[in-house]
């Protein structure tokens, strides 16, 4: 593969929320770049990992303010792009799968209608063409009976089914870049693997860039090429998945130590020691 400009470039990204009670800095000076590869972002609740993803898609909720030295997607400056064009990028070339299909699918629309809407927001197509494409996509996420799933309402589908439908919907426009924001956290352990496998295959087949946001360090390191460890809105450490064992940062080491071993007793379980200096 020839060397090309990275798909996504983020330099010194900051997300601030100006609230009545003061300013909350959710993301502080995050920088990374992403090609057609898999980047994991790990961190605990409130570490800014989700807000980083939302900021890239331009979905930071209202009182939020985004600043960055550089925030480009395929060379397009996401900070200065007109809203309309950003909307075309969103869903068309970059997309996101969220945590819980129970809340992220519209309860009063059938899965099929929601997929058709996603497709037709970006492609000139008749309803029939969009329907074909949607069914094709449902098959790609290994639905046994795509026609039936197509006409289901979200509450009629199980969690795993709903999340696979969500993945199908978000990939129906053949985007280049996907943010998976805790895509398996709301699912049963038994279906987690299945959904991950499907996601894995689709991302590989289509050569997409992926940001995988999770709090599960082990999962992320097995799924991604590189891992970004975040704490308090800042990047603590960036390392290749294989080098996890040799992580330097005390926070990453702390996280690693907290993973209980299957063999032998480890009482008391180690707890995470956080140093306020990390967020200075």
């Amino acid at each position: 593969m020839k060397e090309q400009a990275p798909l996504l470039e983020v330099e010194n990204l900051n997300v601030r929320f100006h609230l009545r009670t003061g300013t909350v800095e959710a993301v502080r000076g995050v920088s990374f770049s992403l090609g057609r590869e898999r980047l994991g972002i790990v961190g605990e609740s409130g570490s800014g990992k989700s807000q980083t993803g939302r900021a890239i898609l331009g979905l930071t909720p209202p009182p939020g303010e985004i600043t960055a030295d550089r925030l480009t997607f395929d060379g397009i400056d996401l900070l200065s792009i007109p809203r309309r064009q950003l909307r075309n990028l969103r869903g068309g070339r970059m997309t996101m799968v969220m945590q819980d299909p129970k809340y992220s699918l519209n309860p009063v629309m059938t899965i099929g209608d929601q997929m058709i809407e996603a497709y037709r927001a970006h492609k000139r197509a008749s309803r029939k063409e969009a329907r074909e494409k949607a069914l094709e996509m449902l098959e790609a996420v290994q639905m046994r009976n795509p026609g039936r799933v197509f006409s289901l309402y979200p509450h009629e589908a199980s969690g795993g089914m709903g999340q696979r439908a969500m993945i199908a919907m978000m990939l129906v426009t053949d985007p280049d870049f996907l943010i998976a924001d805790e895509p398996t956290s709301a699912l049963d352990v038994t279906v987690q693997q299945e959904v991950l496998r499907i996601l894995d295959r689709l991302v590989a087949e289509r050569g997409m860039g992926l940001i995988f946001v999770s709090h599960d360090l082990r999962l992320v390191s097995s799924f991604c090429d590189r891992v970004l460890v975040m704490y308090g809105g800042k990047v603590m450490e960036e390392l290749a998945s294989g080098d996890l064992e040799s992580a330097h940062h005390p926070y990453t080491r702390g996280l690693m130590n907290c993973l209980p071993a299957l063999e032998g007793s480890a009482h008391p379980l180690p707890t995470l020691r956080r140093d306020p200096a990390w967020t200075e």
């Binding site: 969220m98 819980d100 809340y103 992220s104 309860p107 809407e117 970006h122």
Partner: peptide, 20 residues
Amino acid sequence: EYIITARVKGVSEQRIIWGH
């Protein structure tokens, strides 16, 4: 959250308000 989903899909704001 389904409103965020619709935004991610790139659906127009008018459709998000009146349709979703």
